[in-house]
Computed example of a mutant assay.
Amino acid sequence: MAASERTKMAAGGWYTCLDPELEALRVMARDAVFEHNSLPPRQRGDIGPALKSLFGAVGEGARIEAPFHCAYGFNLFLGDGVFLNAGCTILDTAAVRIGKGTLLGPNVQIYCAEHHQEAAGRQVGLEIAKPVKIGDDAWIGGSAVILGGVSIGEGAIVGAGAVVTRDVAANTTVVGNPAGPVRRG
């Protein structure tokens, strides 16, 4: 029996995102995101109930401001005290693990999906999912973009607007496109 597209996605292989099972999972996520984004803040709490139950894990005191968007939700793992500011988008086709005390500024984008390089592959929805890991106590500045397959170390700082295409060492500050370390004088 052939592996399902969800199984291929979870294993980090090529899969088609046009699969009906994956679409049904994205619909569940869109419903949970809609609830989170449309509930009054006092009713929503730190994270809307449907969204919180969809996530892989949510640490104590984790908070997500609205609006927020994710692709699936079940691949998101938030540590204690994680804060995602308004406008964050996480396309979690693979696991996204955000360590305790980490802060994401407004409009931060995390993209785990990488589409096929050939047009024929893109036309049939071929993509591959690459995980993202952000260590404890990191700070991701507003409008930063983090691509799949990247690990950001504990205490690292990603400057506003940076595009992170490769790993960032612990306690390092990176800026720019592509993001690179800030040189100390």
Results as ranks from 00 to 15, higher is better:
127 E>P: 00
43 Q>G: 10
119 A>V: 14
36 H>F: 09
49 P>Q: 14
80 D>P: 05
181 P>K: 11
102 T>L: 01
146 I>R: 05
107 N>I: 04
39 L>K: 07
178 P>K: 14
2 A>H: 04
35 E>D: 06
167 D>W: 03
165 T>V: 13
161 G>Y: 06
129 A>Q: 08
142 G>K: 01
29 A>D: 01
162 A>P: 07
41 P>R: 14
62 A>S: 03
5 E>W: 06
125 G>R: 07
150 V>F: 00
67 P>R: 10
41 P>V: 14
131 P>G: 09
89 T>G: 09
41 P>N: 11
108 V>C: 03
95 A>S: 15
22 L>R: 12
95 A>W: 07
120 A>W: 08
91 L>A: 09
109 Q>Y: 14
177 N>G: 03
97 R>V: 13
59 G>D: 00
105 G>L: 08
77 F>Y: 15
161 G>W: 09
22 L>P: 10
115 H>Q: 03
32 A>D: 08
68 F>D: 03
2 A>I: 04
31 D>C: 07
64 I>D: 11
69 H>M: 13
15 Y>N: 09
5 E>N: 04
117 Q>H: 13
86 A>R: 09
172 T>I: 11
28 M>S: 15
20 P>S: 10
107 N>D: 14
35 E>C: 08
61 G>D: 07
47 I>Q: 00
50 A>D: 02
111 Y>E: 00
20 P>T: 01
80 D>C: 08
34 F>K: 01
86 A>Q: 09
55 F>T: 05
185 G>M: 07
1 M>H: 13
177 N>W: 08
125 G>K: 06
40 P>A: 15
106 P>T: 07
52 K>A: 15
90 I>C: 00
182 V>C: 13
137 D>R: 15
148 G>F: 10
125 G>H: 12
124 V>E: 05
153 G>K: 06
25 L>C: 12
143 S>A: 13
30 R>I: 12
61 G>L: 02
103 L>T: 07
179 A>H: 07
76 L>P: 01
33 V>Y: 03
78 L>V: 05
93 T>N: 11
17 C>N: 04
68 F>Y: 09
128 I>S: 12
185 G>L: 13
143 S>W: 10
157 I>A: 06
93 T>M: 11
74 F>W: 14
82 V>L: 04
156 A>G: 13
177 N>P: 02
124 V>W: 02
72 Y>N: 00
116 H>A: 15
93 T>R: 04
45 G>F: 12
132 V>W: 04
132 V>T: 02
85 N>E: 06
93 T>L: 13
158 V>K: 04
72 Y>T: 00
184 R>T: 15
72 Y>V: 00
15 Y>W: 06
147 L>T: 12
178 P>C: 15
90 I>Y: 05
119 A>Y: 12
174 V>E: 05
174 V>W: 00
76 L>F: 10
121 G>A: 05
165 T>L: 12
183 R>Y: 08
